[in-house]
Design a protein around this nucleic acid. Structure first.
Length: 426
RNA sequence: GCGACCGUAGUUCAGUGGUAGAACUCCAGAUUGUGGUUCUGGCCGUCGCGGGUUCGAUCCCCGUCGGUCGCCCCA
């Protein structure tokens, strides 16, 4: 028996890494004033088949439950979020800044960076559709990566706008009905052979000259290269805000980004790891954007919103590759309490208990073994300190050994925690 | 859903048409007052599963399941 395909067993080390990622997500989100929420991992299938991106339904992990309901494990958090917000948005002041760390599911063949299950940090703002909100979302995403000690040499935020794209398409006489298809082509420009995108655009019955202008537009990397419009003004303001927040070096305008999901309406962005040439590479670490119409379409409540997601798989691979998991990711400094003989059994257990209640991570040997064994066990459990209980415990004295330097000192029991604290900081 | 490659002890891998090995790990001991060395012993596999060819298959063939990577799609 093993885990289902695409599902992971988290052994202690992997679980520690997962906790490290979650802890970092929560810490930065909290600093940005976001509060955590959660929803059901299983939802009515209809929530996903209804209005949010028809693309997603082909790969849903869905089935019929015992009550004959069509249900699906959640493939993304946004529909759940939209439903929850729509139902009770009047209970919350705007802007609402919420985050969640849902486990998401997709039924598809697994490959690198893509499993049937993953955890995804989601942060969303429901507010007034301001450029500052877009900047806040992007800044949070970038600052999370900075918190993992990733730098501008490691990742790049690629900023774009569907609003700008709609203006470009409309200016080129492309009717609204075709926008989604054209977005689909733009979204894949980087992944198809040269010339392929032009063929696809022509297949959508675009004039050759129009197709060329669309492809040229996707090369735009600066707001100055775009005719002024509401969308461009917005992008400019968002970029200015990000620069003011000290994140300018992380962000570039890149009109190749449009995002796959149909519900995005304005600003969109994706974050990619950079290769040695500084080019975006691999799968997106994070992605998101503005979806001002989703709440209206899905739940009949007209609230503008923006958000992004960041999965643990691609991020985890990157942290692994860059060796950015902390040394002590599997836990705090431990203390091992050893005792010489049965005479110290009780005293040792008292000491173990006292230290644990004082907040230290403490281990000891369940059976009285020779010192060789006890010290070996101390090393194996990763202890930084060993405290030896021997005859001197009668006088309230303990031997404290630093297992890394192998130096040992006699310390009074009542001075132990102060001693350990002073040593820990040093 | 499609394609390529792969599937032997917990792990990394060797191996042969006549029912399997190494290293490491793990456990115990050498060592009844101080640990990463060394030595000794022990546990471990229905050789992924099913079928076929064969006197006989872990080895050949087919299927299936699983893994890796890619396509599709993209949280």
């Amino acid at each position: 028996m093993q885990a289902l395909p695409g599902f992971r067993d988290f052994y202690p080390l992997e679980c520690s890494k997962r906790h490290f990622i979650f802890k970092t997500w929560r810490a930065v989100a909290t600093r940005y004033g976001f509060t955590e929420f959660d929803g059901p991992p299983l939802e009515p299938l209809e929530l996903y088949t209804k209005k949010s991106g028809a693309e997603i339904i082909g790969q849903l992990y869905h089935f019929k439950d015992k009550g004959d309901r069509e249900v699906s494990l959640r493939p993304e958090m946004t529909p759940t979020f939209a439903r929850m917000v729509a139902a009770r948005h009047k209970d919350f002041k705007k802007p609402m800044k919420w985050f969640a760390i849902p486990q998401l599911f997709r039924y598809e063949r697994q490959q690198k960076g893509r499993l049937r299950e993953h955890f995804q940090f989601n942060a969303d703002i429901v507010g007034a559709s301001l450029p500052g909100e877009d900047a806040e979302i992007i800044a949070l995403a970038a600052d999370i990566l900075r918190e993992f000690n990733l730098t501008s040499a490691d990742f790049q935020v690629r900023l774009s706008s569907r609003e700008v794209w709609r203006d470009i398409l409309t200016a080129n006489g492309i009717p609204e009905e075709k926008h989604a298809d054209v977005f689909g082509v733009i979204d894949k420009i980087e992944r198809v052979a040269p010339g392929e995108s032009e063929k696809k655009l022509l297949a959508l019955a675009l004039e050759p000259a129009t197709a060329t202008r669309i492809l040229d537009a996707s090369e735009i990397r600066s707001a100055d290269a775009l005719p002024m419009s509401h969308g461009v003004e917005r992008l400019t303001q968002t970029l200015a805000s990000l620069s003011a927040m000290g994140l300018g070096e992380y962000v570039t305008l890149d009109l190749r980004i449009v995002r796959g999901l149909a519900y995005y309406s304005g600003t969109v962005f994706e974050i990619f790891a950079k290769n040695s040439q500084g080019e975006p590479t691999g799968r997106a670490i994070a992605g998101g954007g503005r979806y001002d119409n989703l709440l209206l379409n899905l739940a009949g409540v007209d609230l503008p919103a923006a958000g992004f997601g960041m999965g643990d798989v691609v991020l985890g691979d990157l942290l692994e590759e860059k060796n950015l998991y902390p040394q002590n990711v599997d836990g705090p400094e431990k203390i091992f309490v050893a005792r010489l003989s049965a005479a110290q059994e009780t005293a040792a257990l008292e000491l173990v208990s006292e230290l644990r209640r004082a907040g230290w991570a403490v281990e000891y040997s369940f059976r009285l073994a020779g010192f060789n064994k006890q010290f070996e066990q101390a090393r194996n459990c990763g202890a930084a300190w060993a405290i030896v209980c021997d005859d001197k415990i009668q006088q309230g004295l303990l031997e404290v050994k630093d297992l890394r330097t192998r130096s040992q000192e006699t310390v009074a029991k009542n001075a132990l925690t102060d001693y350990l604290k002073s040593k820990k900081q040093g």
